[in-house]
Amino acid sequence: MSSSVAAMEEEMEMEIPKGYAEIVVVRHGETTWNASRILQGQLDSQLNEIGRQQAAAVANRLSKEPKFNAIYTSDLKRAADTAQIIANQCGLKEVILDEALRERHLGDLQGLTMVDAQKMNPSAYKAFLAHKRDQEIPGGGESLDQLHHRCVSSFQKIAGQHKGERVIVVSHGGFIRELYRKAAPNRKLEGKIQNTSVSVVLISASNNRWFIKKWGDTSHLQGIGMLDSGFGGDKTSG
């Protein structure tokens, strides 16, 4: 292949369809609670050393891509710290905190391991594992339908503000799973949302059309560790 043809193909890959925003979605780095298999929900926990290495790796990767116009993040510390590391590397001056990008609220289960949740609050544990879309979790927890609505509306808003632009959003495993459900409603999501995995979604806010351009890429994490054993990002994400 000639260099001119390769350059043309690369340029086409970079193009954003008219009226769409290209949103690069990143799950936060691994946390101390991920490593301890604790349900985080909307409680705060710190990135651990592996999580910081993961954040640095994804930041380095994204810094080599075409320019980003903005970076948004959940205001929970594990996501906000990941976003700040990315912003510093990509030359983005402002990290926009948005509580609408938070993980699902898990009610009375937040702060418990799965084993302790089953023993200490069996009713909330049962509600959590039921996976019924309209099932709220005792203690103020969200249903999957409520999480889905929050997820979709927040991304529609971001897409409407960034037509023709590329932006980064840092969020959480359960939240990102709902993005997939919206963008690919007829396909089953296999596997988990890995820490600092990269997915790319094209969204038209005007006609509510969503397309997946890339999903769950972790090529930047080779050699960092905890990729397969990391907790969360699956059907019991939180």
Rank of each mutant, 00 (worst) to 15 (best):
K214V: 00
F211G: 02
A79V: 02
V152A: 08
K126Q: 15
Q42V: 06
L109N: 12
P138S: 06
N208H: 11
C151I: 00
Q135E: 12
H28A: 01
D75V: 13
Q118R: 09
V24T: 14
F128I: 11
Q46G: 06
E65F: 14
I38Y: 06
N60F: 05
E9V: 01
A59E: 06
T32R: 05
A184Y: 02
A57M: 11
I85N: 05
F68Y: 14
M120D: 15
M120E: 15
S219K: 12
G19V: 13
F68E: 11
G51Q: 04
D116C: 03
N69F: 09
Q89M: 09
Y72K: 00
Q118Y: 15
E9N: 00
T218F: 02
V200F: 02
V25P: 01
R181Y: 07
D44I: 11
I23L: 13
V152P: 01
G160Q: 03
P122C: 13
L39N: 10
K188F: 05
M114D: 13
G191P: 11
R104A: 14
S4L: 10
I168N: 07
Q40M: 10
A127W: 15
L147H: 12
S237W: 11
H149D: 13
V198K: 05
L221H: 09
K67S: 15
E190P: 00
R166I: 01
R181I: 08
Q110G: 13
K182R: 11
G223D: 07
E22L: 07
G225F: 00
W33N: 05
L101S: 03
R181S: 05
A79R: 01
E30I: 04
S153H: 11
T113M: 07
Q194Y: 12
F155I: 07
R133W: 05
V25S: 07
I85V: 14
E22W: 02
V169I: 04
S154V: 00
S63L: 09
Q89W: 00
G160C: 07
H149A: 10
E49N: 08
S237M: 11
E49L: 12
L47M: 04
T82Q: 07
K93D: 09
K18N: 11
I16Q: 08
R104I: 11
E103P: 06
G216V: 00
D234W: 15
V167T: 04
V198T: 04
G29C: 09
R133E: 12
H131N: 13
E94D: 09
Y20T: 09
D228A: 03
N69W: 07
V95R: 04
V170L: 08
S2R: 05
A87T: 10
D98N: 14
L202E: 13
F175N: 12
L112M: 13
L92W: 15
M1F: 04
I212N: 03
